[in-house]
Design a protein around this nucleic acid. Structure first.
Lengths: 341, 341
DNA sequence: TTGTAAGCGTTATCAT
DNA sequence: ATGATAACGCTTACAA
């Protein structure tokens, strides 16, 4: 910019005013403006973001702390966030949430803090008390996406999905197909997963369906976890005729394990997933699952984080919580209960 | 930092020296050092990255421009990059490669340029001439991962996989099972995909296998593309007994479409993928595919980008190219050729 | 051993 | 209508 000013024979401040279309725009002579613009273009001038940020301008960086980008669902969420941020001129900085030690995780997050205008937490951070504490006292907006229900407290503005609505739709579908012995497979810890489990339990209780203890199966959220879940459930005296999986990844594992054992899906066993990842349409059979409006949810989260609603200032109120409705996508992994099972 | 200096009753420069463990470390009195450290900790002092960067220090930001994070393979690559960068104290800034217009894409990338110490391109950028040109003239290191073979020129230091080795291993496996009519399904444009296609053609030629024109099937890299590929290939007079897919996503689509048509895999049709994404172990049947050493490749790429080897300075030489070897993972989607097919 | 001061690229506030 | 200058937070010669 110094060079531009020198080449144009004007002061830096003039160049700054012109290039920023300052509020006092009308008060700069057209001749000078054009000359400066031309020279700036010719010299290939680019503003230096750090210098601006040093002056207090927003860094246009949004921190995204994701538990596991490898999870196809979160990958889609990040994709959506990248698109949404791009629209607003922001860039996404990936926070790293894989550190084993709480300390390291917190440290990483705090580092992000320095660069970014806001932080978006994607997925819940059960067990990361330290991280959450540090972020609570951080001087920037923090927004949580898919952070589990308010049952578990709500430290930040939150965007969530109505887990009960999704689970109810899935279970309505299964019961309408005649299923009564419906098992559940899901992770044991994450808030957002526990919400689905609770909704499952409440539905069963309300509908008077059998709630055998073994019908709730806690496994890691992987293909292997799904396989483990199936073999556990097959060991029960009263085998379920349908299984509700907390995530599509688990449903994949269930389908895979069923096929390996020669159990027909959906002829002998119906399976429902949750997430509707892109590959859910490509399983054999294709997966009946619950879809969430990822794009809209992410957009809402980004708006809370860097939008001009000024959430941080409303000190007295509890942080806002935006809830979206999921949709059941019926494909071919569910069918009528087998007469003789 | 000013506050720390004031509270400690010393000059800023002293604080800076102490907190940075400056080279002159030994020349600061221990008493002062401890006092400053204590006060800094008490005040919760954090260095301001922008101010440092303004002074010429590295921003510790690495730009990752990915074509499509939704692709499970790239998601795994980004995950690996996040881990690798974390080790080195870097953060990953996501570049957005979804813009339709070449202009917009280039602009976005140039913006990244201002923040980051280096850029890593993940996947090839066929057709993005403008982006590549802008990046070539950028004053920072640019490294390309999975950018396709040098057949297409090599504007940047590159980390690639030996596509021919992977394809050869897959085809050796198929031919050893008795297959001779082997088709190929893959995208028509990406360099990195074309490498696989070329390797397929060369293998067929060298092995004297039939190269029916219809055996090469160009489709979009999606589940639907795989389904399309299968229906096209089934329309041929001489149906293939095995299909080599350029990516696991396509292989998923092929398996799905085969099941939908009642074609047994691998009894009637063998299918091989490429990438070994995590879900490849969970298909029905599980997928035989080619695995690349993602972690090592990403680590090599990050090293080229921000390591201290100083690649940029070697002006005369062509940029380095690091090639990794893939491995065939044999699962259950391949089997002996059917006697009567 | 420590303090002073200049400068990184911008923008805002005064002057002129 | 434009120019000079200070300030953002930090590092680093150079001076003391």
């Amino acid at each position: 910019m110094k060079d531009v000013a020198a080449a144009a024979g004007v002061a830096q401040s003039t160049v700054s005013r012109i290039l920023n279309d300052a509020p006092v725009r009308i008060r700069v002579s057209d001749a000078t403006r054009e000359r400066v613009h031309a020279i700036a273009a010719e010299l290939g001038y680019r503003p230096h973001p750090f210098a601006r940020a040093l002056r207090g301008a927003p860094s246009m960086l949004l921190g995204a702390v994701v538990r596991d980008i490898t999870d196809p669902f979160f990958a889609e969420a990040i994709e959506a966030m990248s698109v949404e941020c791009d629209k607003r001129g922001y860039s996404v900085v990936l926070g790293h949430a894989h550190a084993k030690a709480d300390e390291a995780l917190a440290l990483t997050a705090v580092l992000e803090t320095r660069h970014c205008d806001a932080i978006v937490l994607v997925g819940d951070f059960y067990g990361e008390r330290r991280l959450v504490e540090d972020l609570r006292s951080a001087p920037l907006p923090v927004v949580a996406l898919w952070h589990g229900s308010e049952r578990h407290g709500r430290p930040f503005p939150t965007v969530a999905v109505d887990a009960a609505a999704g689970i109810n739709a899935a279970l309505d579908h299964l019961t309408s197909l005649g299923h009564r012995r419906i098992a559940y497979v899901g992770g044991a810890t994450r808030y957002v997963i526990r919400d689905r489990e609770v909704a499952y339990q409440e539905y069963l209780a309300a509908a008077g369906l059998p709630q055998a203890e073994g019908y709730i199966c806690h496994v890691p959220n992987t293909i292997g976890g799904g396989e483990l879940g199936l073999s556990t459930l097959l060991g029960l005296v009263q085998r379920p005729t349908a299984i509700l999986a907390a995530t599509d990844t688990l449903a994949f594992g269930l389908i895979h394990a069923a096929a390996a054992r020669g159990i027909g899906v959906p002829a002998q066993l119906s399976i429902v997933g949750f997430d509707d990842i892109q590959l859910a349409a490509g399983t054999v059979p294709s997966l009946t699952t619950v879809r969430m409006p990822i794009t809209e949810m992410v957009a809402a989260g980004v708006e809370l984080a860097v939008g001009d609603a000024g959430w941080l200032s409303s000190d007295g109120q509890p942080p806002p919580r935006v809830v979206f409705q999921p949709t059941l996508i019926v494909r071919n992994s569910t069918g009528p209960v087998a007469p003789e099972s």
